[in-house]
Each structure stands twice: as C-alpha cells, then as structure tokens.
Design a protein around this nucleic acid. Structure first.
Lengths: 338, 338
DNA sequence: AGTGGATATGTTAGCGTTAACATTCAGAGT
DNA sequence: ACTCTGAATGTTAACGCTAACATATCCACT
C-alpha cells in the first residue's frame, strides 16, 4: 500500500535491505521458490508492501529470455471478424498471464506481414498469432523469424506452422444445402475477394454442395466484403430471371443485397431466399432477419492461444497442429421454402 | 540477409568483433549518433547484415528506461466504436515508432480499470491510453500508477488527466435540430446505458435542443446499445400515438428500431423519422439508409496518441490538454419532412 | 611549434533481475 | 561424536545494452 517512494521506485535491493535479507531471497519469494522459510517470506512480503515495490519485468525478461508477451498480427481490426478473433486472443492470453502486443495491418501491402513479424520479434515476444486470412499473408509465414513459435489463424494449408481455423468449406456447404433443402433449384453466390482463403473455402463448399446435388453452379458474383459491393451484386441479381436463392459470403454484403432487393421490389424471402455468413450481432435485426452461418470467433481466438502456449511451453517436440472449428447454421426469416 | 547464426543469435559484441570496432561504436551506428565516420558506419552495417544481427530491445529498455511501448485499455473491442478507436491508436502509435499493448476489459467489473493500469505499468509502458467511456472507468483514472503519462478517450471531465473525445452533446443537438428543422413537433430519444458518458452527452444535447426550441422533452427510452434493446424500445414507440421523430443513441439500436417499425407496419420515414449515431459502415444500407451522426473514431485515436506523445516526450511542463473532435451529420433516407 | 577544440573511437560501469555456485546450519544415520 | 544430506540463505556473475567518461587523432589558429 503506502508507497513512500523516495524519488525513484524501489528495487529488489531496497526490499532486501528493508527485510534484512539478500536480494536473492526476495527474488525467491517473488518466484515462489519452495525453499524459503515461511517466516522469512512473510517478512519480505511485508517489506514489499511497505515500499510499494513492483518487480521490473523488463530486467526479468532480459535475464530469463521470456517477455511473457505474445504478438498478434491482424488485418483491419475494424471488421467484426478480426476484431472478435483478436478479442478472444487477448482474453485467453491475459488469462494465461501473457501480455498482448498488436500490429494491425492496413492493407496487405502497406507493411508486409514479414515486417510485422520482424517488428514483433525485435520486441522479444515469446510467440506470435497471425490472423492471416489472405493467401499472400499466409505465404509470408514461410519465412518466420528465428525460432519464435507461431500460430496462424485462418491460415490455410500453410506448410510447417500450426493453424486454427473455421471450416469454411463446410460452412459454404451448409448454407447451400440449407437452400437446396428448401426446394430451390440452384443457388447463386456472391463471393469475397479472390485473395482471401475464407472466400475460396466458401466458394468451394457452395460448389461442392451443388455438384453433389447434381445442379450446375452459376458463375459467382464478385464482392469485397463491403455492404456496397453486396448492394451492387444484389442489383445485378435483381435484374436477372430465375434467381430464387443466394448465398452471400458475409453478412455485411448480405445487408447490401437485402437493400438492393428492397429497392428493386424483390421480396425476401417470398421471391428470393438469402443466406449470409458470420452472424454479426446486427444480422438478427436485418429486414428480414438474416439466416446465416455462424463462426465462433471467440473460440478461434482461444484455441489459437492454447495451441501457441503448448508450442511455447512444451517446446521441442511440437508437432504442427491443425485445429478446425465447426461453423453452425442460424436459421432466420430470410430463407423460405420455394 | 545471410543469418549464419552459430547457435545463439548474435549480440552487439559479435558485430563489433566482425567489424573490428568496439561494441559502443556499433551502438552509436544503431542510434544514429553523428560522430561516426561514414566509412566505419558502412563497415558496421555490413557486419550487422552479415551476421543478421538484431538489437535486443529488452536490454535497451532496461538501460534507457523507455520501452517504446504504449498501453491501451479499452472496453469490448468487438464493438465498432472501440475497435475503430483502438485501430486509430495502433496505427498512429506504430507510425511514431511505438508498440502497442492492449488490455480489453470484458465488463467494467471483471478486472477493474486500475488493475489493467497496474498490469500495464508493470510491463513498463511509456504511456497509457484509456478508452474510458463509462463513468466508473473515468473515475479509476484518479489513482494512476506512478508517473506514467496517461490520456483518456471519451473520459468526461476527468480531473488532472488529458482527454480526447467527440463532442457528444453537440452530436445530440445536431441530431435533434435536424429533426426539428424538418418540421417535427418533438423528438423522442432512445438512450444508451446510464453509466456511459457518451449516453449522457447525447441525452443532454437532445434535451438542450428541444428546450431551446421551446418543446417539451418526452421521457427517454432506455437502451443498452444492442440492436435488441433498440428493437424493444422501437416496439414501445410503435404502439404509441404522435411519435413522428426518434433520435436513437447509436446505429445498432437504430437498426433494431427500424426492424420493430417494419414489423409493426410503421413506415420510415413516411410516418416516423429516425436518426442514429456513429455511422457504422452498415448504416448506409439499412432499410431505409440511416441518417446518423458520424464520429471520426480514427481521428480520435490519432489525436490521443499525439497528446500522449507530447506528454511523454515534452515531459515536465505538460498542461492537461482537452481535445474535442466535432461530429457531423450524415443525411440519408430515414428522415423526412413532416 | 604549441595549444585548443572539435571529431572519432575505446573503456568502464551500471540498469534490475535471475542463475549458478557457495555457504551455513540443522537434523538424521552410523 | 562425525559425517552426510538437504533446506535456507548469501555471493557472484551474467543478460545485452547505453551513458559517461577516457583517450586518441586531426586540423586550425595563434
């Protein structure tokens, strides 16, 4: 409590003198070394309290070579997906007693993933989580700095690095099968940007489901995740004949699609059914409420930390793990039987 | 380049030996000390490159007492506002050569703001930005650890700490005046949680505008920022008579309101005009597109870093700054003349 | 030529902690 | 009584860097 600091903050030696022991004993108390008499321990604790001592983690890191800090590299943390993942990561890391240092990349080119990794490695992080949803980002994981343990989130089939991801293919398949099961002849798709692995996976799942049902897949429409791109694709679809079901690669674009349909007088789900992806908090209140594929971003974040810590702590024989989180269908009012 | 690492990573002494100089000269080169012959500098750089040397920032921090790391404390970074602010902070900080360590608080009680501050102070951050939109969070700023420079974002009228914020009162006033100018007799309000300073500010602005126009302010409806709470408040309003204009304290709740109105057959903006707050990327594509008050979160983040760095670097005579970012009205289709 | 003052380098001493080794002291086993 | 073990503590030496203080070296100006 009473931090009677005489100018500079107290150091271990000050505590030692106050308690009448050596600084090493103080260190032992702090590190919960077993061989300390409980009476001594009490005396030291008292001195710590009296002086308001706090151990200098930088000095500690210098000698132990462990900073208890993890680095996180992510894209645009303004988006719901990355933001939620990073949040999950941060919570899990702090729960495990680690600090989290974040680098948000504006775009993939602005400062490369490698630069971000270097930057974090310089700082002496014990491990790194890379939220690498883009192919080019995943590739940068090849040339990792020194021996810093690393985990990729949504990192695709990266070679020798552990990966935690949501099963995008399965998600795409679920969305499509849901629509087919409602009696739709075929399902159109508005996809995400081609560099994104998630976009690829969803396309693959969509295509697989259609093929399996013996339907031909129409040409997917291009989108960039933004509501606006969904809006534009939606206008195109509205002007076409025979469109009764659309699987949109994320909820934001689906919002744009709904908007376009509303403007064009296309009624959802009476005339066209729409399925999104992500289950952002808003989608339950779209007009109509959106049927979507939910991704458990929090779980992804937590798992990535688990895998990373396993790699850091049980170093040496760490096989490269691959953890896949299943998505789930959330059925709402934007889909209906044909 | 060629990191011919012989077991452990090279240190300054290795570079010194390689270049045939003292380790101090290497340090000088790295720190861009002027008094180094350019020929020597070149030789050192070459050695650095050859050995793949990277300076140990932990050791540097130990002696300089500066970690070049800033701490950020924020609430639920899953929400668009905090996420965008933190993003702006991170970008600005990295631009200034600082690392960013983040602590996201789940709720205000889970781990107190003070704990988070201590946690960051332990790590030796050079400064802290607290995104403290709640009254209770702002209060915790009173008891700051040691002499770590701190800036509050949305921190209200905190005593002796610098604050960067958006002018919420003005925003509330703008929203209300916009509706009044369209000929509405009065304006209803769905407010945010009472512990939030932003919610208070918007209420105050709304009330002030009504009073100034000589109208009586109806009782505001309670919300918690979530679309669901907006939906519920919207249902209440739909069942009432004489409601022609609603100012909703954020866009997410406004979405819920629109949903409720749609369900109840209340047409926006024909029967009721709605104004939101934030201008999230989705609001342009709501049905109808939402008129809202835009907050420039990025600017808030950037400014907070500017203020913080000014406090860190020009230490000593730092008056407590207060920087207010103005909001702006974005007029869309959810509001119409009465 | 002699001295002053830059300019360029080397040497030494920490920063605050933990690791490794040294010491002390008690109690057990013979 | 005499070692032997291990628990409890102290002492010393890093960790890798920068700051502060030497120490050359060179040129200019009296």
């Amino acid at each position: 409590m009473g931090a009677t600091q005489g100018r500079r903050p107290p150091v271990m030696a000050d505590v030692a003198k106050e308690a009448g022991v050596s600084h090493q004993t103080v260190s032992r108390v702090l590190n919960e070394h077993p061989n300390v008499r409980s009476e001594t321990r009490a005396r030291v604790m008292e001195a710590i309290d009296k002086l308001g001592y706090r151990r200098n983690l930088v000095a500690r890191a210098l000698v132990t070579k462990h900073s208890r800090t993890l680095g996180v590299v992510s894209f645009d943390t303004t988006l719901y997906g990355p933001a939620s993942t990073v949040y999950g990561i941060e919570q899990a890391a702090r729960g495990a007693g680690y600090f989290v240092s974040i680098v948000s990349l504006k775009s993939i080119d602005k400062i490369g993933v490698s630069d971000a990794l270097d930057y974090l490695a310089d700082q002496g992080v014990d491990g790194i989580v890379v939220v690498a949803p883009q192919r080019s980002a995943a590739q940068a994981l090849g040339e990792l700095p020194f021996g810093v343990p690393t985990v990729a989130v949504e990192g695709g089939e990266a070679g020798d690095v552990s990966v935690v991801c949501v099963d995008q293919v399965r998600g795409g398949r679920m969305a499509t099968e849901h629509l087919l099961s409602l009696g739709h002849e075929t399902v159109w798709h508005i996809r995400g940007p081609s560099d994104w692995l998630e976009a690829e996976g969803r396309v693959a799942g969509w295509r697989a489901a259609l093929e399996q049902a013996g339907r031909t897949a129409p040409e997917p429409l291009a989108g960039d995740w933004s509501p606006r791109s969904g809006y534009e694709a939606g206008r195109s679809l509205a002007s076409m004949k025979g469109v009764t079901a659309v699987f949109v690669a994320n909820d934001q674009m689906a919002l744009g699609v709904l908007r376009a349909f509303t403007e064009q007088g296309v009624r959802v789900p009476d005339q066209v059914s729409v399925v999104g992806f992500d289950d952002i908090p808003e989608s339950e209140f779209f007009s109509p409420p959106l049927t979507t594929i939910r991704q458990d971003f929090g779980a992804v974040g937590r798992h990535s930390i688990e895998v990373l810590l396993r790699q850091i702590e049980g170093q040496g024989s760490h096989a490269c793990e691959r953890l896949v989180v299943p998505p789930s269908l959330v059925s709402r009012a934007s889909t209906a039987r044909r």
